[in-house]
């Protein structure tokens, strides 16, 4: 680990070793090639937005970062370390499940469909991983969980089960759950796509707040407003390749590539 981020010492954006680095990443599902050589770099403290039409491979790429999907070719690094493998003497060794799990502790993930544990209350959802994975004692984890729920504006819903919460509330609990592991990188897989339009704002507010605290975030999203306002970097993907990248304001207002233009003309 090179540089660890805390809220207090948020570094200037765009400095230090890359938090995520992809070099020619390929991924196929059977015969279908979903990622056709992705090269990109996410720097610490940066909010990195991935946009593109559905089926363009952006979610798949996100899932490769914490090894929920195995890549077929190329190299993928998180915080300077290879994802899913160990390189030794010019050979690649697959990591054991335990080692993969160990690395995932440092990467929080928020899913499109929330994936909260339905048999646990909001508070229990947030406590679960610190207690079960890190071995934090229950009282401490509880205290921290209450703080996190407060931070996402749901302190009063701690005792509710996911089925008793609205979509927006569930997603905010899911963000608190991921933060409870003190990750140095947060992945968001279309966090607002399954929400009613009026609930989207609450979730984006929480994400904005998180970005301001200096968290490194990779966000797959269709929220162009969020990308423009909060994003430091934006990549437009189509058909498994990076078509265009740059500063969000630049790409969104002045797309150079034809495919970007036609996509943006439909969604903006």
């Amino acid at each position: 680990m090179t540089d660890k981020l805390t809220k207090q010492e948020a570094p200037e954006r765009g400095t230090g070793v890359a938090m995520v680095k992809a070099e020619g990443v390929h991924k196929s599902f059977g015969q279908v090639e979903v990622l056709k050589g992705i090269d990109l770099e996410v720097r610490p403290g940066e909010v990195f937005c991935l946009i593109g039409p559905s089926g363009s491979g952006k979610s798949t790429f996100l899932r490769c970062i914490n090894h929920l999907e195995k890549i077929n070719a190329g190299r993928l690094y998180v915080d300077g370390e290879l994802v899913g493998y160990r390189e030794h003497g010019g050979k690649l060794y697959e990591l054991r499940d335990r080692e993969v799990a160990m690395k995932r502790r440092n990467i929080g993930m928020v899913f499109q469909r929330f994936n909260l544990f339905p048999h646990m209350t909001a508070l229990e959802n947030v406590i679960e991983a610190p207690v079960q994975v890190k071995g934090t004692n229950r009282g401490e984890a509880r205290e921290r969980a209450v703080q996190l729920l407060e931070r996402v504006g749901l302190a009063d819903r701690a005792g509710h089960y996911p089925s008793q919460l609205s979509g927006g509330q569930q997603q905010r609990v899911a963000i608190a759950r991921a933060l409870a592991m003190d990750p140095k990188l947060m992945l968001f897989d279309e966090p607002t796509s399954a929400l009613d339009p009026e609930l989207v704002g609450d979730v984006l507010d929480v994400m904005r707040d998180l970005a301001e605290s200096g968290m490194t975030m990779v966000v797959v999203t269709h929220e162009m407003g969020f990308a423009r306002e909060v994003g430091d970097n934006l990549v437009f993907m189509d058909d498994g390749v990076v078509v265009e990248s740059g500063h969000p304001r630049e790409v969104l207002t002045n797309p150079r590539h034809e495919r970007t233009q036609s996509f943006l003309s439909k969604v903006l």
Binding site: R104, M109, N115
Partner: peptide, 27 residues
Amino acid sequence: VDEGQTEAAHALGMSHGKTLRRIIIPQ
């Protein structure tokens, strides 16, 4: 049990065994 549950547990760094005992079997 929805596959998303396994993914969420794995993404939090839970092992296969823990995921099974704490998340999958209760559901």
